[in-house]
């Protein structure tokens, strides 16, 4: 498959170089919000939205910065854009789904510092994607994040019932499961090549 085609960019961001399981970005919400399937999928949707918005904005800002010849402001601009996008999502969720707002808790504003999103903006700039490619990349990354989060939540719900030794209860076991999951995702290496 052509590495510049939209389909390949999507699959690449979603499965082959899954942001969580093979690039290890966004581990904080991956561990924090993966206790329940329902919260996990909604967190995933919020992240997809933030990723799409910040990817679009980052594309525009990057073009503007290049025009003004001030590329060194890129990082700080991206952070500002992501923070405002998260603010938008936060207000939206607070208004329309207070229950979800409470369930996501601190992790909702923390999307701001989710390195997966800043990573996405920086990667798309580095790879010099055009606008449509940026959108495919953002969608792939978001969907990949949601898949990883949902699978993890399913496993953790099941492990709640397991007779886990005290030494590895909680975060330790979650990290071990994440590691094994990451091993499983290695199977996607080179897909579509």
């Amino acid at each position: 498959m052509d590495p510049d085609s939209l389909g390949y960019i999507f699959i690449n961001a979603c499965l082959i170089n899954n942001f969580v399981l093979s690039m290890f970005l966004g581990i904080c919400p991956f561990l924090g919000v993966s206790a329940k399937i329902e919260t996990a999928t909604r967190m995933g949707l919020a992240v997809i939205f933030v990723m799409l918005v910040s990817s679009m904005c980052a594309y525009g800002i990057n073009a503007l910065l290049i025009k003004l010849n001030v590329e060194f402001l890129r990082l700080i601009c991206y952070i500002a854009v992501i923070a405002s996008a998260v603010q938008l999502v936060e207000m939206f969720i607070k208004r329309f789904s207070p229950a979800l707002f409470r369930a996501l808790g601190i992790f909702l504003p923390l999307i701001t510092t989710n390195c997966a999103i800043l990573g996405l903006a920086l990667f798309q700039t580095q790879k010099q994607y055009n606008f449509l490619q940026c959108l495919a990349y953002a969608l792939g990354a978001g969907v990949g994040f949601t898949i990883a989060l949902t699978i993890m939540a399913g496993l953790r719900e099941q492990l709640d019932l397991a007779d886990v030794p005290d030494a590895v209860k909680g975060a330790a076991l979650t990290l071990i499961v994440a590691g094994i999951l990451s091993l499983a995702f290695m199977g996607f290496a080179g897909l579509g090549g």
Binding site: Q158, L159, A162, V164, P165, V168, L173
Partner: peptide, 10 residues
């Protein structure tokens, strides 16, 4: 680490 046979997820 998962708690023995019957609790492992993989």
């Amino acid at each position: 680490l998962f708690g023995g046979l019957g609790h492992n997820v993989f």
